[in-house]
Amino acid sequence: MISLHSNDLTVKINEKGAELTSVNDATEKIEYIWQADPMFWAHHAPILFPIVGRLQDNQYTLDGETFHMTQHGFARDYTFKVLDHDDSKAVFQLLADDDMKAQFPFEFDLQVTFTLTDHTLDVSYHVLNLDDKTMPFSIGGHPGFNVPLNPYEGGFEDYAVTVAPRRSYAQIPLVGPYNDADHEKTLNLTTPLQLDHDLFNQDALILDLNHVETTIMLSSTVSDHGVALTVENAPYVGIWSPYPKRAPFVAIEPWWGITDSVNTTGDFRQKMGIQTIQPNAEFSADYQIRFF
Rank of each mutant, 00 (worst) to 15 (best):
L4E: 01
S6V: 10
T10G: 00
I13A: 08
I13Q: 04
I13E: 03
G17S: 11
E19C: 11
T21V: 14
V23Q: 02
N24G: 00
D25M: 02
K29R: 12
K29M: 09
K29F: 03
M39D: 13
M39R: 04
W41H: 00
A42W: 13
H44G: 05
A45M: 04
L48N: 09
I51W: 11
V52M: 10
R54S: 09
Q56W: 09
N58D: 15
N58G: 11
M69G: 08
Y78V: 12
F80M: 06
F80T: 00
K81L: 09
V91G: 01
F92Y: 10
A96K: 01
A96V: 10
D97F: 06
M100N: 00
M100D: 00
F104Q: 03
P105Q: 01
P105V: 08
L110F: 15
Q111C: 14
Q111V: 11
V112E: 00
T113V: 09
F114N: 01
T115R: 04
T115Q: 00
L121S: 01
H126E: 12
N129G: 07
D132H: 09
D132S: 12
D132K: 10
P143C: 07
F145T: 11
F145L: 10
N146K: 09
V147F: 02
L149E: 08
N150G: 06
G154D: 04
G155E: 09
D158P: 03
A160T: 15
A160E: 15
R166W: 09
R167Q: 15
R167F: 00
L174T: 11
P177M: 07
Y178D: 05
D180E: 08
A181W: 12
N188W: 01
P192N: 03
F200V: 11
A204F: 01
A204G: 00
L205D: 14
L207N: 13
L209M: 07
H211A: 08
E213A: 15
I216A: 05
T221S: 12
T221N: 07
T221I: 06
D224W: 04
D224C: 03
D224H: 08
A234W: 02
P235D: 09
V237Q: 07
G238Y: 03
I239D: 04
S241G: 01
Y243M: 04
Y243G: 04
P244E: 14
R246N: 05
V250A: 04
E253A: 03
I258C: 06
T259V: 12
S261I: 01
S261A: 06
T264Q: 13
T264V: 06
D267M: 05
D267A: 14
M272I: 10
I277K: 00
N280V: 08
E282G: 02
A285T: 05
D286L: 03
D286N: 07
D286T: 08
I289T: 10
R290Q: 12
R290W: 00
F291A: 14
